[in-house]
């Protein structure tokens, strides 16, 4: 036993646990994207940019207007939810019958717009909340309180979504839509309204992720580029629209990033994750959990 503990590097354990903590937030992002794809059949390329806007909202409410973090958070979630609904109403809804590539590109255009909007409105400086949360020490291991909080909040968020999807009429309808769009009217379901609700929900999840990420990362107009690609990879590996697959893939990727970051910078963790993704495509081309449209 003692020998085992000796070879078991304490830092490795720390990295593993940090990976799990990071996985929570990534799973939240993947869930939002999967939800929108599963119901509306579109991919928001600008998803991470919604997170970026949410992070700015947090920054301004907390730093500029002096609101407490826990009061600002619900406002941010609401704001980004509204943005999500607006994105659907203004950009996706007019393109619902257009070829999928046009929907993708339109959200790509929105990515441009959001990035340059942030540049114009907030400048390119890196900003942070200035909240320094304490570090928790378990024996020789250190965990940032921010990460722990993020993980728990992400978990709570996902459980809330799960309950909403399984317990409520609206949630059940959201799960039903992708299985048979045409007959939803026979159930008395207004599909357009469901799309708006789903988009708001997806936006809300991005908003929640923003509240959590802003604790750990500086915000700048291009911060979305750090989370976007990894979220897309998670969704592809887990299977687009597959909630459980996305959840598992998020934790797998988070571990890789975290363990990769153990040996060098976080960005190399991303590279490692991408390499892993390519390898996985060879081994399990149908995604982690095979359910492919």
């Amino acid at each position: 036993m003692q020998a085992f503990l000796d070879i078991f590097d304490i830092y490795l354990l720390e990295a593993v646990i940090n990976g799990i903590l990071l996985g929570g937030v990534l799973a939240l992002l993947a869930l939002g994207l999967n939800l929108i794809f599963g119901v509306i059949d579109v991919t928001w390329i600008c998803y991470a940019e919604l997170v970026m806007i949410g992070m700015y909202a947090m920054y301004f409410m907390v730093q500029y207007y002096g609101l407490s973090y826990f009061i600002a958070a619900p406002f941010t979630i609401l704001l980004v939810a509204l943005l999500g609904a607006l994105l659907h109403y203004l950009v996706i809804a007019p393109l619902l019958t257009a070829p999928p590539i046009n929907q993708l590109l339109a959200t790509g255009g929105v990515l441009f717009v959001l990035q340059s909007f942030a540049t114009v409105a907030f400048g390119i400086d890196f900003r942070n909340l200035g909240i320094r949360l304490p570090v928790l020490a378990f024996g020789d291991m250190n965990f940032s309180y921010a990460r722990l909080l993020s993980f728990l909040a992400a978990l709570v968020g996902m459980v809330a979504v799960y309950l909403f999807m399984t317990r409520t009429f609206t949630g059940t309808a959201i799960r039903a839509i992708s299985q048979d769009r045409q007959i939803m009217a026979l159930m008395g379901v207004d599909t357009k309204r469901m799309y708006i609700i789903t988009s708001a929900l997806g936006g809300g999840l991005a908003g929640l992720a923003a509240c959590l990420l802003v604790l750990q990362y500086d915000v700048h107009p291009f911060v979305g580029l750090s989370f976007g690609p990894i979220t897309f990879l998670i969704c592809v590996l887990g299977g687009l629209g597959n909630f459980i697959g996305g959840f598992i893939a998020a934790f797998v990727f988070a571990e890789i990033i975290s363990l990769g970051g153990l040996f060098s910078d976080l960005e190399w963790g991303y590279v490692l994750a991408f390499a892993f993704f390519i390898v996985m495509m060879f081994i399990r081309p149908a995604g982690l959990l095979a359910r492919r449209r």
Partner: peptide, 25 residues
């Protein structure tokens, strides 16, 4: 493995994102 449509777009999208990350890293 016939990765097409949305999947192909997202994989390639990630590819360009990762190259950017490497250059920055």
């Amino acid at each position: 493995f016939r990765i097409t449509g949305h999947y192909f777009v997202l994989v390639t999208l990630a590819l360009s994102g990762i190259v950017l990350q490497v250059i920055t890293a």
